[in-house]
C-alpha cells in the first residue's frame, strides 16, 4: 500500500483551523475597538487635534492644562461631593430594602421587581422624569411638600442643593440593582450562624452588627466599587437636567470630556481627561478597598 504523505496530527490542525476561523472576527474586533483605542488614547495625550487639520505634537501641553484647569478640578470635586452623598445613601437604602425582603414575605417577587424597575429604564428618561419631579413650580415633589405645609424648594437651581438632588435621584435609579447584590449575599449567611448568635442572646441590633454586616462585607465592597465607578461616569443626568449648572456645581468629568470633544473639537485634551479619569477611578477604588479592608481587620 502506498504510504500517503500524512500531516502530523492532522485532526489537531483541523481543530485549530476551525478555532481560528471562529475567533478571527473577535480578534480583529479587539484590535480595532479595544487595543487600538487604548494605545491611541495614550498617544492623544501628547497631541493637539481638531479632526479637521492634521494632528500636531503637543508635548506636555494637555497634561499641564489639565493640572491647572479649574473647570476640570471643579468637575472632579463635584464628583466627590456626589459620592459623599450617594455612597452612604446607596448602601443604607439597598441594605435596608434587602434586609426587609430577606424575610418570609407575601409577594416577594413583586417587591423585588418594583425596586428593580428604575434599573431597566434609560438614564435619559429618568433624568427627564426627575426634572419634572424636581420642577420648582409644577413639580410633583414640591406639590407634595405644599400638601404637607412646606414651602417649595428650588431643587435643581440652588447651587448647594442641585448635586445632592442628583445624588438622591441616582440612588433611586440604582438601588434595586444593589438590593439584588445584598440579597444574594444574605443567602450565604448560614442558618447555623444565625441560630448560634441567637442562642448567645444577641439582640436584633447586635445580630446585625456582629453577624450580618461583617458577612456582607464583600457585597458592600462591590456596592462601593460599582457605585463609585458609576459616579465618575455621571453624564446624562447633569446633561439633561442642569447642563452642569447652577454655577457649574453639577458639572461632571464625562460632561466636560464630551464638551471638549464635541463642542470645542479638542481631541487631545478630551482624551487626556479620559486617561486622567481612568487613573482617578483606579486610584479611588484601590484606596476604598484598602480603607474598607483595614476597617474590617480592626
Amino acid at each position: 500500500m502506498m504510504q500517503r504523505p500524512r500531516p502530523e496530527r492532522s485532526s489537531m490542525r483541523a481543530e485549530q483551523r476551525s478555532a481560528w476561523s471562529l475567533t478571527a472576527p473577535y480578534a480583529a474586533f479587539l484590535l480595532a475597538f479595544a487595543a487600538y483605542p487604548v494605545f491611541f488614547a495614550l498617544a492623544l495625550v501628547f497631541m493637539h487635534w481638531d479632526l479637521v487639520t492634521p494632528p500636531s505634537f503637543a508635548g506636555g501641553d494637555n497634561v499641564r492644562l489639565l493640572v491647572t484647569d479649574a473647570r476640570f478640578g471643579r468637575a472632579v470635586l463635584n464628583t466627590f461631593v456626589f459620592l459623599a452623598i450617594h455612597l452612604p445613601l446607596q448602601i443604607v437604602t439597598a441594605l435596608g430594602l434587602a434586609l426587609a425582603l430577606n424575610r418570609r414575605l407575601a409577594f416577594r417577587a413583586f417587591w423585588r421587581a418594583t425596586f428593580f424597575l428604575p434599573v431597566v429604564i434609560s438614564g435619559a428618561v429618568v433624568a427627564i422624569l426627575w426634572n419634572a419631579l424636581y420642577a420648582t413650580d409644577v413639580g410633583l415633589i414640591n406639590n407634595l411638600l405644599a400638601k404637607l405645609g412646606g414651602s417649595p424648594i428650588p431643587w435643581l437651581t440652588d447651587p448647594s442643593i442641585a448635586m445632592p438632588a442628583i445624588a438622591v435621584m441616582v440612588t433611586w435609579k440604582n438601588v434595586g440593582f444593589y438590593v439584588i447584590i445584598y440579597l444574594a449575599g444574605l443567602q450565604y449567611i448560614p442558618q447555623s450562624c444565625r441560630e448560634a448568635i441567637e442562642l448567645d442572646g444577641a439582640t436584633a441590633w447586635q445580630r446585625f452588627r456582629h453577624l450580618t454586616l461583617p458577612m456582607l462585607l464583600p457585597q458592600t465592597i462591590l456596592v462601593v466599587t460599582l457605585s463609585t465607578i458609576n459616579g465618575f461616569q455621571l453624564f446624562i443626568e447633569p446633561y439633561v437636567m442642569t447642563g452642569g449648572g447652577p454655577l457649574r456645581r453639577t458639572y461632571s468629568v464625562v460632561l466636560y470630556m464630551y464638551t471638549n470633544a464635541f463642542s470645542y473639537q479638542k481631541m487631545g485634551y478630551a482624551a487626556t481627561i479620559g486617561v486622567a479619569l481612568a487613573l482617578i477611578i483606579g486610584a479611588v477604588v484601590a484606596a476604598q478597598r484598602r480603607v474598607i479592608g483595614t476597617a474590617e481587620a480592626a
Binding site: P37, V38, A41, W49, I229, V254, A261, A271, G274, A278
Partner: peptide, 19 residues
Amino acid sequence: TMGVLLVPGQLTLIPLYTL
C-alpha cells in the same frame, strides 16, 4: 477579554470617536 472588562469606557471613548 478579561482585561477589556477592566478598561473604563471613558478611556477609549474619545479615540473610538476619532476612529
